[in-house]
Simulated scan of single mutants.
Amino acid sequence: MNTKRWIASAIATVIVIIAIPIQIVTAVLTAEGSEWLSFDQMYNKEVMKNGSNGEIVVLELDGVIEDTGSNNGFFSVGYHHRQFLEMLEDAMEDPLVDGIVITVNTPGGSVVASNAIYEQVVRSKEEFDTPVYVSMGEMAASGGYYIAAGADYIMAHPATLTGSIGTVMSAGLNFADLAEEWGISETSVSSGEYKQMGSPFQTLSEEEEVLLQEISDDMYEDFTAVVAEGRGFSDEEIDTLAQGQLFTGNQALENGLVDELGDLRDAVSHMELMLDLDATVTHYTSGSTVGSMWNVVAPMASKDPVSTILDESRATRMLYLHQ
């Protein structure tokens, strides 16, 4: 056995040694810990300003837009998709809430997750007659702008980076050359010519690249249609603005991508003016409980490192994300 094979065998042995205790922890936690770690994660309501009439809710969208399947919790920070949708839905369905302001600070993320928020923004306006404003932070790009395009009013800081209208197809990692060099191969049987497209052990063919490009183009057309409808752009205007480029807040205002320059306070004041309110402003924020620990520990312990790496390498995803 040559040196490279000895090294590969040693690495595999180390990974197995690490994986065994993780699997044991998983079994223990699953069998004995699920009962006492079963609390639901809640969110908090904090009053930012007391008013004499009406209420405006402020929601915070901060981080990459992804649905990770749970409200990742006790030790995590950032964006929690399902909880954000829950807070948005609660706010729009509350008859005492007159308007919603979403602060957006994100480079974008998943196409599906971005669309889910966009649909709720539109639903808030059309079904509940509750206006939605977007106040942009440091970045509101790609999926962040997709969501903003559905709002009644968009306010950005002069230095905000926004735009990046377009799609990215992530076809996963590719180990084909490395695997060949180290004598590593995958044994599998598939039912169709393109069933293993995106395998980390195979280089994409020209035909596969064409298929993926067609998928990307389809999602791109959806993105541009949403922006054109939300901002009133012509086909020519959207073609010029939707080349994946970033804009500062100043540039976005000049190009009609946002309505005004300002911060969250300005966005709230504008909404109060439009609704003729002196509103109480309530901030819905993520909360955490002891039960949130289970949302962190269980996913980490449920897979061995090899499976995790392979899963990530095989992930073909469509993204509204500025990279």
Score class of each variant (00 low, 15 high):
165 I>D: 05
117 I>Q: 07
96 L>Q: 13
79 Y>T: 10
144 G>M: 08
63 G>I: 02
79 Y>V: 12
65 I>V: 08
98 D>Q: 14
54 G>W: 06
170 S>W: 03
49 K>L: 11
181 E>R: 08
135 S>I: 04
134 V>P: 06
147 I>L: 09
120 Q>P: 00
66 E>C: 03
122 V>Y: 01
42 M>D: 02
177 D>G: 15
80 H>R: 15
66 E>T: 01
137 G>Q: 00
75 F>T: 10
43 Y>H: 05
133 Y>E: 07
119 E>L: 15
133 Y>S: 04
77 V>P: 00
135 S>D: 02
112 V>C: 03
145 Y>L: 06
167 T>S: 08
45 K>H: 09
80 H>V: 10
155 M>L: 11
81 H>Q: 12
66 E>D: 05
50 N>H: 15
71 N>A: 08
102 I>V: 14
171 A>N: 11
144 G>Y: 12
159 A>F: 06
115 N>H: 13
139 M>A: 14
160 T>H: 09
54 G>I: 06
52 S>A: 13
70 S>I: 14
43 Y>A: 04
160 T>Y: 08
53 N>M: 02
114 S>M: 07
66 E>R: 04
118 Y>H: 13
171 A>T: 15
180 E>A: 09
56 I>W: 08
58 V>A: 07
82 R>H: 00
159 A>K: 11
94 D>R: 01
132 V>Q: 03
144 G>C: 11
178 L>D: 12
86 E>Y: 11
123 R>K: 15
137 G>F: 06
170 S>Q: 14
62 D>S: 11
141 A>D: 05
101 V>A: 07
179 A>I: 11
158 P>T: 13
145 Y>W: 03
142 S>Q: 10
114 S>T: 08
118 Y>L: 13
114 S>F: 06
169 M>H: 11
106 T>C: 04
108 G>S: 12
137 G>S: 08
116 A>S: 13
90 D>I: 02
49 K>Y: 05
95 P>K: 09
143 G>T: 05
65 I>K: 00
172 G>N: 12
56 I>G: 01
82 R>E: 00
122 V>F: 07
87 M>I: 11
151 A>E: 07
